[in-house]
Simulated assay, not measured.
Amino acid sequence: MESLGDLLKQMPGGGSALRQADKLMAELLADPLVEKLRSKYPELNDAIIRLNMNKIYQCTKEYRNCSNCPGLDNCPNDFEGHYTELSCETTGMLVQLNDRKVPCKRLLARQAENRIRSRVRSFYVDEKALSRGFSADEIIDKDLERVGAVGQIISYINETKEHGLQPEGLYLTGSFGTGKTFLMCYMLHELAKAGYTGAIVYMPEFVEDLKSLMHEQGKLKETVDMMKETDLLIFDDIGAENLNPWVRDHVLGAILNYRMNRKPTFYTSNYGLDAIEQHFSFTNKDGDELHKGQRIMDRIRPYVQAVHVTGHNKRGRK
């Protein structure tokens, strides 16, 4: 954005710069924004305004830019996402006009959203689902059949905001494409705004990657420790993964054993709690191991509220 000095240089007739300055001074004095500034600070006489023409011109120019904002990425102001704010300070007979850069609402909103995103980690789940903000009414309107499930999740969010982390998580079960992952992402986003950290893990791909992490012990420990410590942990589409005993007993079991009675864990699945126990009881390597499936379920079933998500399949729909 051009400064007042640049504007004066562009005017024809370099020898008449003083007259041009007088003209700009007159325009500033007639500007409603300057009139508003003077009504707030009556001590701003013409002499002080002339002395601070550059600051005042900058302020009025940026105010109008903001009034016709083209978006944060196309901000025309000198300091992106900021505008000039003026204040007047009087000490004895000395009147001083001060200027400072103030972040605009759009920048503050983006910074707040970035802080929210920094609290949530996603493993193999579309991050767009985590960043999109929806109201409760919008979520219900998307599918009235799942109003009961939405009500349970909103109650859980409100309870956590009011009383802190709950001892139990949620176990969302239902048919394909009913929005279980979406509802968990909504919960994560809402609670991240309240300051909680979280992670959502798509189990089928995570389990496959764990096999390669067996040979990277440092990275494996870092991943497992993060899942142990994050405030809210979601295992998405559990039951769809190809389990092996090591993943079940030494990774998933270790994470759940640490989190129970400490922090809530959440699940989405096409299987109910009884069916998921059968899934945990069988691995391709060792076949049926009912006691090991029960051991995992002892770390899941007592620590979740079951939520049945009904509705139509939304995948592939716009």
Rank of each mutant, 00 (worst) to 15 (best):
D274C: 01
L37Y: 05
H279M: 12
V224R: 04
D237A: 07
R106V: 09
K101L: 13
H250S: 14
E229A: 09
G272V: 07
N244T: 12
G151M: 02
N257Y: 10
T310M: 04
Q278I: 13
Q166G: 07
I153K: 04
G311D: 02
S3M: 02
G14E: 15
L7I: 15
D22S: 13
Y271M: 15
T160W: 04
G133R: 12
L172A: 11
A240K: 13
A275E: 15
G195C: 10
L210H: 10
L7D: 14
L86N: 12
T160Q: 00
K193T: 04
T178L: 05
D31L: 07
E277A: 14
K263V: 13
Y83W: 06
S212L: 07
G13M: 14
R119D: 05
L144W: 10
H312I: 01
L51H: 03
K263A: 14
N114Y: 09
R132K: 12
F176W: 14
C66Q: 06
S118V: 03
T160N: 05
L233K: 08
R132G: 00
Q58A: 12
C185F: 11
T173F: 11
K263G: 14
I49C: 05
N68V: 02
S118H: 09
K219V: 05
L165M: 15
V207I: 02
A254Q: 13
N313M: 00
I49Y: 00
N68R: 10
P42I: 00
L97S: 10
Q294H: 12
H215E: 14
F182S: 08
D237E: 11
G92R: 01
A306L: 13
P76A: 06
E2W: 02
I56N: 04
C75H: 02
E62S: 05
G92L: 02
P32V: 02
V147G: 11
H163C: 07
V251T: 11
Y171M: 02
K263T: 15
E289S: 11
L97P: 11
T160L: 01
A47C: 02
I139W: 00
L107H: 10
I296G: 07
F79H: 13
R121G: 11
G81P: 00
A109S: 08
L37N: 03
P32I: 04
